[in-house]
Design a protein around this nucleic acid. Structure first.
Length: 443
DNA sequence: GCATGATCATGC
DNA sequence: GCATGATCATGC
């Protein structure tokens, strides 16, 4: 079947297309007919993804879903783990065990291996009350190829299961028999139903399927998380593209919508880090930190615009002590150090109705000329601290930077060279300057 | 509406 | 306990 979105013969192409689901639900990623989207009882997200996102014909069971690429597609639920990451909601079923056939197969030639050598696994956040088409894919897809070490265990599990059937004990199979790959109950043959025949015994057996056990799935997820998102994506895209793609999934969403999608609420109506928190959630797929930013030396700042597109606030930087700045040089100062960095601005903006939305992100370096102006303000500050620490550069004195208090409260005072005590201060980039920076880029 | 002053919540 | 990022509050 022809498809304009990806090349069904290319694993890479399929994978990149699958990544468009990351951070979204199926209904956000593609059109779903109302009759299906509204059917809250519709349980099988996997087949909906196959038909509406990948536009595959309903599969025959014989081979992998992406026949040409030899790739089997799996869609599976995850739950939040106490650690902050995710864990598997349940085992991943890989295909029914055909008691008659499996006994005649070798591991290398097995239909199990043929079908499950390479898996493309999509992880969505399981939320009971949420219709399946609205459940969000919270991790990047995982292209699963069992490691050598895993394969040894999986093979031994598979052979154990096969041997039990050869011994005429299919009815005694149990998931606990094995380590990573289990024979789980699936399909007809439950209580009161007719049992299936097995080749080496007259006793009927419950029908079973091969499945990666829940613990194995959770460990896959854990490994995937730790090298996922950024690092995995970085194999294919630039740092900037990765970041922009993460935010693109939430662009134009209201702050409320974003917070709901990550299931976070303002813990406190004065929670000043709320928007920053949302940005962290977006970048880390629901986690609570973004070590990649630190690793790359990127300084993330949130900017909230007013109705006219001007930042509501100036941007603060680490504080300085009056007595210390006298001993510092510009290039030894923490303000200098920060301004040398690459910034990631996460920009929020109110729409016509005043609803604040994620506008866009911007990776930005301060131009050299503006750093010189920041240096001038810093030098001026140092000079004036020595004269009168209560009279420092105001925002009206420079287009770029100024100095203002930053403290716990009115009691948060530190000593001045003049022998008095004065409110702790820090450097700020002017709101007006930031406005120019933002206007000069993108839109 | 903006400049300036003041302070809050959080994470280490 | 304290630094940090961020926001609130006030007065012109």
């Amino acid at each position: 079947m022809q498809n304009a979105n990806y090349d069904p013969a290319s694993v890479e192409s399929i994978y990149s297309f699958a990544r468009k689901l990351t951070g979204r639900s199926l209904s956000e990623a593609t059109f779903i007919p109302n009759a299906i989207a509204n059917d809250k009882n519709r349980g099988d997200l996997g087949s909906l993804v196959e038909s509406f996102f990948f536009e595959l014909e309903p599969g025959s069971d014989s081979g992998p879903d992406f026949t040409e690429a030899g790739l089997e597609l799996k869609t599976t639920g995850v739950l939040r783990a106490a650690s902050g990451g995710y864990k598997a909601k349940e085992r991943l079923v890989l295909g029914m065990i055909n008691f008659e056939k499996v006994v005649n197969e070798s591991w290398e030639e097995s239909s199990f291996l043929r079908k499950c050598r390479v898996l493309l696994i999509l992880f969505y956040l399981y939320e009971k009350e949420r219709p399946v088409v609205d459940r969000r894919f919270v991790l990047d897809p995982l292209l699963f190829r069992a490691s050598e070490a895993d394969l040894i265990v999986i093979r031994s599990d598979w052979e154990f299961i096969r041997q039990k059937i050869m011994d005429g004990e299919a009815h005694e199979l149990s998931e606990g028999d094995t380590v990573y790959l289990g024979a789980c109950r699936k399909g007809s043959g439950g209580l009161g139903e007719s049992l299936r025949k097995q080749p080496f015994s007259e006793i009927g057996a419950k029908s079973r399927a091969f499945a990666f056990k829940q613990g194995f799935m959770s460990s896959l997820i854990g490994n995937h998380e730790s090298d996922s998102g950024f690092m995995a994506a970085l194999h294919e895209s630039s740092f900037e593209e990765v970041i922009v793609a993460k935010f693109d999934a939430h662009r134009e969403k209201s702050v409320l919508e974003i917070s709901k999608s990550f299931d976070v609420m303002k813990s406190n109506k004065n929670q000043k880090g709320f928007h920053r928190n949302l940005a962290v959630k977006i970048l880390s797929d629901g986690g609570h930190s973004v070590p990649e930013l630190q690793k790359a030396g990127v300084e993330m700042k949130t900017i909230r615009l007013g109705a006219r597109g001007r930042p509501k606030e100036s941007m603060s930087f680490p504080g300085f002590k009056f007595l210390e700045i006298l001993e510092e040089t510009w290039e030894g100062s923490s303000f200098y150090e920060k301004l040398e960095k690459k910034f990631l601005f996460v920009i929020f903006r109110p729409d016509k109705n005043g609803v604040e939305r994620l506008d866009r992100v911007l990776l930005w370096n301060m131009p050299y000329g503006d750093r010189l102006e920041a240096m001038r303000v810093w030098e001026d500050t140092k000079r004036r601290v020595a004269i009168d620490a209560t009279d420092l550069p105001k925002s009206s004195e420079s287009l770029v930077a100024h100095v203002r208090p930053k403290g716990r409260n009115g009691n948060d005072v530190i000593p001045t060279p003049q022998g008095g005590m004065h409110l702790r201060q820090c450097f700020w980039l002017n709101a007006g300057y930031l406005e120019q920076v933002i206007r000069g880029t993108g839109k």
